[in-house]
Design a protein around this nucleic acid. Structure first.
Length: 284
DNA sequence: GTGATAACCTGGGTGC
DNA sequence: TGCACCCAGGTTATCA
């Protein structure tokens, strides 16, 4: 599933190929990609304009065109961006053609991904600020900041990490890996974590995300990089998707349970279960 | 205001 | 073998 490292992987590969290029043509085969706006409303204004830079904010990939026009793309669960994909590749939702005769295809079997146009920096900032919290690699991402955000919260810390309005870019995989490394149970109430636990969690979130970026992301089912190659972070998972296997630290069993409505992997020897936590085991 | 849940969507896995 | 059902999960809307 594309989370921050997967989107950053695509951004790093795509930026040198796209920056400076002019959009000359587009074809949208699935209008849902730009819904509720029509594809022409979203992509029409970009034709004849050059990409000045490619940015990432949370899980959004942002192509900044001339005249402060911004194309926001979100891969959601199964979206992929492919460079010079085969014509007629299955599940292609949109194709952008550039003045160097290369193409960028948005491919997405489950059709959750989106493309969105924003005009002007203020509109971009307002859109992102309403949806996204602190960036994990920014100076503001501190244990003290996280602790302040969680003060009084009774939500499980797993739900807290997944809430994009608080922390931008962390998804199910990296939340599991960060919590395991910090030895914090995903069902522990966010507001009850100690200062030391927040400091540690801040470090392990960054650590897991950095390793993910170094590995060009994780490819469990669908994610591929720009050229269709798989990432390798899935080979370094410590607990995620390892139910029934031995914990790499203590040898205890890795369990799968439900937290924040998501399949969640945990070693309850390393991550002690909070008193009174209601466990919903998952068998699949 | 906060937290939980459903809906969106479709490929793949499971059970009968 | 074939069919029906369930699950996966990021985001948003809705409900309690």
């Amino acid at each position: 599933m594309p989370e921050l490292p997967e989107v950053e992987t695509v951004r790093r590969q795509l930026a040198p190929r796209l920056e400076g290029r002019m959009l000359v043509v587009y074809r949208v085969s699935d209008p849902r990609w730009t819904a509720p706006r029509a594809p022409n409303e979203v992509l029409g204004p970009l034709v004849g304009r050059r990409v000045e830079r490619l940015q990432r904010r949370g899980k959004y990939l942002i192509a900044a065109f001339e005249d402060e026009l911004f194309l926001l793309m979100h891969l959601r669960m199964t979206g992929n961006l492919l460079y010079d994909a085969e014509p007629g590749a299955p599940y292609t939702r949109a194709i952008l053609g550039f003045d160097d005769e290369h193409t960028l295809s948005f491919v997405d079997p489950r059709r959750f991904g989106t493309g969105w146009l924003l005009a002007g920096e203020p509109e971009l900032d307002a859109y992102l600020d309403a949806r996204l919290g602190v960036e994990p690699f920014s100076d503001d991402f501190t244990g003290e900041h996280l602790r302040a955000l969680a003060r009084g919260s009774r939500a499980p810390v797993k739900a807290f990490l997944l809430d994009q309005r608080r922390i931008a870019g962390v998804g199910n995989i990296y939340a599991d890996e960060a919590l395991f490394r910090a030895r914090v149970h995903p069902l522990r109430e966010a507001g009850r974590l100690t200062r030391a636990q927040w400091e540690l969690l801040r470090d392990t979130v960054r650590e897991a995300l950095s390793e993910g970026i170094d590995a060009n992301g994780a490819s469990i089912d669908d994610f591929r990089d720009l050229d269709g190659a798989r990432g390798s972070f899935q080979d370094r998972f410590l607990v995620h998707r390892r139910a029934g296997e031995a914990c790499p630290v203590c040898g205890g069993p890795v369990r799968k349970l439900l937290a924040a409505g998501r399949g969640t992997y945990v070693c309850e020897r390393c991550q002690p279960r909070p008193r009174g936590a209601r466990i919903v085991p998952m068998t699949r």
